[in-house]
Structures are given as structure tokens and as C-alpha cells.
Nucleic acid binder design. Sequence first.
RNA 1: GCCCGCUUGGUGGAAUGGUAGACACAACAGACUUAAAAUCUGUCGGCCUUUGGCCGUGCCAGUUCGAGUCUGGCAGCGGGCACCA
Length: 846
Amino acid sequence: MSTQYNFRDNETKWQKAWDQASIYKAKETAPKYYVLEMLPYPSGRLHMGHVRNYTFGDVIARYKRAEGYSVLHPMGWDAFGLPAENAAIQHNIHPKTWTLENIHFMKEEIHSLGISYDWSREILTCSPHYYSHEQKIFLDFFKQGIAYRKESFVNWDPVEGTVLANEQVIDGKGWRSGAPIERRKLSQWFLKITDYAQELLDGLSHLDHWPEQVKTMQINWIGRSEGARIRFPLLEREETLDIFTTRPDTIFGASFIGISPDHPLVESLAKKSPALQTFIIECRALGTTQKDLDVAEKKGFNTGFSVQHPFLKDHTLPVYVANFVLMDYGTGAVFGCPAHDERDYEFATKYKLPILPVVKDSHDKPLPYQGEGIIINSQFLDGLTTEEAKKKVIQKLVSEEKGVAETSYKLRDWGVSRQRYWGCPIPIIHCSHCGIVPVPEEQLPVTLPHDVSFDQPGNPLDLHPTWKYVDCPVCKKAAERETDTFDTFIDSSWYFARYCSPHSSQPFEKKEAEFWMPVDQYIGGIEHAILHLLYARFFTKALRDCGYWNISEPFKNLLTQGMVCHETYRDQSGTWLYPHEVEKRHEQYFKIVDDTPVKVGRSEKMSKSKCNVIPAVKIVEEYGADTARLFILSDSPPERDFEWTEAGIEGSWRYINKIWRLVTSHLSTLKTVELSNTPSHFTEKALQIRKLTHKTISHVTQDIEKFHFNRYVAHLREFSNVLEEFKPIDTSECWALLEALTTFVVIISPALPHLAEALWAELGHNSFVATQPWPQPDSTFLKEEVITLAIQVNGKMRGTLDISPNLKADEAQSIILDLPFIKAHVQDKTIRKFIYVPGKIANVVI
RNA sequence: GCCCGCUUGGUGGAAUGGUAGACACAACAGACUUAAAAUCUGUCGGCCUUUGGCCGUGCCAGUUCGAGUCUGGCAGCGGGCACCA
């Protein structure tokens, strides 16, 4: 028997055997368990972040299978998106060709990892077999009023004449043209996610197995706030201006009105004011991201208009156009109360507007004070708390018909139009006579034309000579197709449903989907905490309301994994170097080609731009899939970032071989006993081994259940460390060792499926370890008769005592106070308190 | 700027409010070997007057018999901010 484990032969051998036996094909037999990793974008090569993601999913899938569940574990491709178009422009390759090539390589690499996927359910979002159903769903949303059109802003590159993604705008300039980007209004498609704001918020409280931080982020993103809508009459026109505020209690501190540069009123005012036009242009140059708007200096433009204060007869407020007021939130207009709002304070100071405090705080904190307190300077509100004042002022507004109580959400409707080629075509026809006409269902899918050119800037669909020209389905006159495509977030908002019946002629079969859904365990990066997860939740509810199914939440349990990081290297000139370009000698790094010293930077998220990437394929070739999987599981808890190191992968490789030797070296001994033939008597050593075996089963089961994969590996190592030392000398000890090793091979199998399969065969089995049931611990071995109790004096550890965990407090006290090291510390001092937590601790307080 | 996290030995990390550092990696010392690799054994938070004691979980406070863990404040690092996925 070789002392080195041959991973190359074994891994391909077992992968083939599993495929042939189709043991990972999902069957609809209860109880079910749906484990899903986030749909990957086919970027080209598998990186360690993928390996980590799929390894976590595979451990869970294999464990649940062993637990007796019918497991659905599918995989597919988020195949539309910007990078394919960039590749088309840069390398003159068709987005489809580029995408399919990438998928080809990545699929092979995933396969080499031995992940237990049911490949018969593979999904490809760029295939008409997938996106035709997406078009059908969109048409249903349109019928249901969930999809609608409105104008909104895009990043417009005036030189290229194209719309840019936020990531293509660098410091306010186009990434290729360098031209300053304008915000330009376009008519686009939106989904009414705001209709679901309250339900999306309420649903979070039932997602007990989602990380708290993800739920908090979503709560803040939805941003429900209760306040008031107040109607201010304009003095200069026969119009009123509605504002939304969460602080109606500070109405007497109001010193100005701020309206968004995109407010309808501003549009009409700007027609007569070139100065205002200039100001609006300035605001629109700020960029479209929230951060740009937040960081920008607060600026305003005095319109010369003013409004009447609702409660102060002779008091008017000037109306400013303010760059920090968002049209998308509330009514696009606010009243400014500088004493109690930071932005208003900055604004009022700048434009020398009055700052009147109306909330008194008990600690006399400096202004602006945004907390709670007692109302002052506010007539009928004086003396009330801010909470009481809110209620009272709303009552008064309502009775005088000047306003209403209102709940507002920060959540905005989801803009799904993209002016790009490589996405799902929006199945709509624009007819000059009939207006917006949905493509009739029997004409679906609207397929992407293949013959497109990326030679000129702009959307190739819009520039295509024939594709967009069609006859109107209603009046049969000449009309044009919608040339925008969908945001790729749509593709990933329902794929989990399609997996349930991937070959259906409908988007999915209700029966199958309701059998498998919700996803029992969803796994992916924390970077998707808000957008993807919120969109998928919204889609699930919208599909329900269109009659597709009776499911409201798609993901029951959520595991958000951290990033995979690696050290960064730069040569003397500051150029980034790949790990394979450097060599380590005596704690120092050198560039291999010219032997010059290398500067080592801190560990950062693996990225191509910093060259700190390790291709998964290289690791699998050098060490095998099981070694890679083991390292990824053993070093960090899943939620945290993972640091990839050469030493770490080496250490895992050594352990793989250690396991191989541990089991194979005992094979001849183990042949002398059979598990079905339990000895009537066990030696003390045999019992100790049995106790450890069953405690280990108990530990690793809990570890996997709680996703403490690093502790799972630690417990495996503790177990094997003891087994290595164990030399059986009689039948009962041989039997205990066989029980231990058989158990060991089964419990390593979710993590190390190939090695476990090889060892299972060595142990003489004809079955797959992958289909073995999970072992159950014998509870008689889990009880402890004696535990080590920590003894403290005044909370400081002073020694330990081995006693029964069931010892009564008074008995424990007399024993403990009699201990020499306790006597030495207590001496003649009085014992003020004696704290005893059975099985945990004793604390003598003096 | 706003929202959400994270911070424990040389390193990755472990620890239902109850013995801080499990399990590893690295390093050092030793065994085996002609030698190397592999393997095995030992040491491994800091300090001191070392069968013992003091300090120590980013920093400053607080709650508690007892805080890495809970609360408040601060710093550093990271994720998200609606057209990257």
C-alpha cells in the first residue's frame, strides 16, 4: 500500500462513478432539502471565491443527503451582462461566443471539484429557453400593473453617445472618452417594488435564519418612516407645495423650503430664469450615485418664491432649490429646520437663514440637535415631548386641512431598462398609433439578433438595420421594437424557481416549485445583502400575485460568506505581481525573473487588478480537489474573510495523506473483526475510543448544522490524532477501532468526498459512501461523570477541581473552601459570597 | 456622507456571560537519513524574583461575583449605496 494518496486517479475515478450512477439527481420524495449557491457570472475562470461558495454548499448537500433528505442542488449561469460586451469591444469577439467559452471552462473546473450537483437542471440565462419565460413573466407583470414606464436619469456620455453604468463613470467622467458625464432623462421601464415595501419589511421578521445584519440592512434600505405631508400655499402663484417631513414637531423652527432640482415646479420656474437653468445643470453634473450627492457641498438657489407658514400668520418661508433634496423620496420637497437637522444647519449657515431652536434637550447639547426633548418656541406645542408634539401637530394639520399623516419609504421603484445588447430583450412594441403594445405571448421569445456590430458606440439593438422594425400586432402598421434589454438582476430574481422544473414549457411548474421551494439553504457573498436578495424576495411575491405559486419568501436560511483574500506583491517599480511570479526565501520575497526584492502588501480581496489571484484549476491540478476543499473549510468561519496561503494548502495536503495512512495502515488488523459482531466485553481503552467516536459524531453534527466548518475540521483532527496513537491489542479494541475508522470515513465524506470514497472501498464496501446514512451518536457515551470545575477567587482563576457535575452547592462549597490554594487566598478574610454554577464555575468572593 | 460589519499569540482561528489561545500554520530544537524530502517528538502570548505570580482579546469608560462575549463612546479596516455582478 502506497503511503501517498493518489488524488489524481481517485478524483477522476469517483467523479465518473458518481455521474454514471446519477446519485445526485434530485428526486421528489419527501422530506426535501433545497440547497443553492448564488448563480455565478461566467467571468472566465473559477476563482477561490467560487470554490469557497460551492464547497460550503456541497458539505451541506452531502450532509443532508446522508441525513435522509431528498436534496435539490443545482447549478447554472448568470450569463448576460456588461463584461461580455466589453470583451466584444476590446477583443472583437461576440458576447455569446465569449460567454459560452467561459462557461465551458468553468463548468469543467467546477466538475473537477467533485461538487454534488444535479447537472440535468443546469440553467443558462442567455438562452432563449430561459429568457423567453422571463419575457412571459414581464408581460404578466405588465398586465398586473407591476411593470410601468416613467422618465428617469441615466449617465450620459456625450462623446460616445451612450449610457454608462455607474462603474463606467470615474470621477464624473466617462471611462473611455474621459468626457464629463451628464444626467439625462430617458423614458424607461420600472417595476413597482414600492407597492411591496411594507410586505418586504414585514416579511423580514419571519426570516429567523437570516443573518441579523442582512435584515437590518434591508430594513434601512426600505427605510420606512412615519411623518406628515404638509401643504404650503405659494404666495406668488395659485398653487400649493406639498412637503414630506418626519419631524412635523419642529414646524415652528422652519426657516426655508427646499425643493429638488428635479421637482416639477423647478422645471416651470427655470423656463424664465437662465440663472436657475445654470444651477440645475450644475446639480446634474454631480453624478447619479447616492454617495456623490451626499458628499457634495450643500448648495441652493433662491427662487424668489415664498410660502405661508401653516400656523404663523405673518410668517413666510423662502423657497430654495436645494441640491440635497431628492425627487425620489417623499414629495421632492422639504421644510428646513436648521436647529434640528444637520444638512439644514449647514444650508442655513451658508445662506444666512434664521436658526430657531424649538427642541430643548436636557443636556444642552450644541446645535444642530437631532434628538428628542421638550418643545419650546412653538405656541400650542410648547412643553410637549417631541413624540407628543408629532401627534398633536398632525391632528391640528388634519383638522385645519393643511396636511395629513403619511408613511414614506426610501425604497424606490426598480429601473430595469438597460440600453445594451447583451441582455434579455424587453417584449414590447412601440406603435405610433396604438402606443405601448406587448408582444403577443405566442410570438415569444423575442430573440436577440446574432449579427450585431460593436464598431460604433451605442446600443447595437438600436443600430441594427432590421431587427427593431416590426408590424404592430394590433393595427398591423409599421412599428418599432423596444431596444432596451433587462437589468441582469431580473435574470437572477427567479432562477431558483426555474431549477424546480428546468425543462417546463412554462416559466416553472407550480406543483414542482411548491414541492421544492422555498430554498432551504441559500449561500452567497455578503455583497448581495441588499439588491439581489431584495429583488428576489420582491419577484417571489410578484409571481405569487400573478398566480404562479403560493410562495412569499424564496430563501428560508441564508449564509453570507466572506471574501477570499491573498497577500499582494509589487516589484521595485511598483508593478503588481502574481503569486507565481515571486519566490519566498528566508522570510523574504524575490521576483523570479530577475531576483529583485519584492514588496509585500497586506492581504486583500483577490482581484485581477492587484494580481493576487490563485486560479482554482492550478490548485486542483497540484493538490487535488479534496485538499482545496479541506483548506477552505478548515481555516476561517464562513462569514469571515478567508486568507489564502501557500502554507495553508500545504498543511491540508499533509493532512489528506495522514488520513490515507491512518486508515490504510490498519486494514489487515481490521479484517479480523466485523461490525455486526459486537463484542460482549470492552477493555477500558476500547471504551475510551468508543466514547470519543460518539462524542465526535455529536460534535461534528452540531458543527455542520451551525456551519462551523472550521470546528468540524478541528474535531476531525482531534479524533484522528487520538486514533493515530491507538494500538489495539485485543478483539474488543480492534472492533472499537473499526467502529471509529468506519465512522471517521463517513463523517469526513461531506468535506472530502473523493478520499472518503476511496477509503470506503479500501474498508471493503461495494456501496458509495456518498449514499451512506449519517451516523447517530450513542447517548450513553456522551455523559460525563467527572468534569473539571474552574475555581475563582474574586473572579480570578485560582485552580481547578475534578468533581461530578451534579454536585450540590453546599457540598461543593465545603469541598472548595477546604482546598489548599483557596485557603491560601482567603486566609482570615470573610467570605462575602459563594457563587456556584454546577458544571461551570465556583467563585469565592472575599 | 449614509447604512451594515469586523478587530483575540509571529499567522488563520477556538471559547451558551464562567479555566482566553481548542485545532492548525509558521518558527525553533531534536530523532530518523550518507544527504535531502517525507515522517515523528518537543517548545511556542508577554513579563518577573518561575512547584508561583503579574499583565494580556484595537482604544477609553460602564454593567456584573465574573466581560473576548453585554452597554455607551472612539479609532482602524472592510462590504453596500439602487446601471458591476
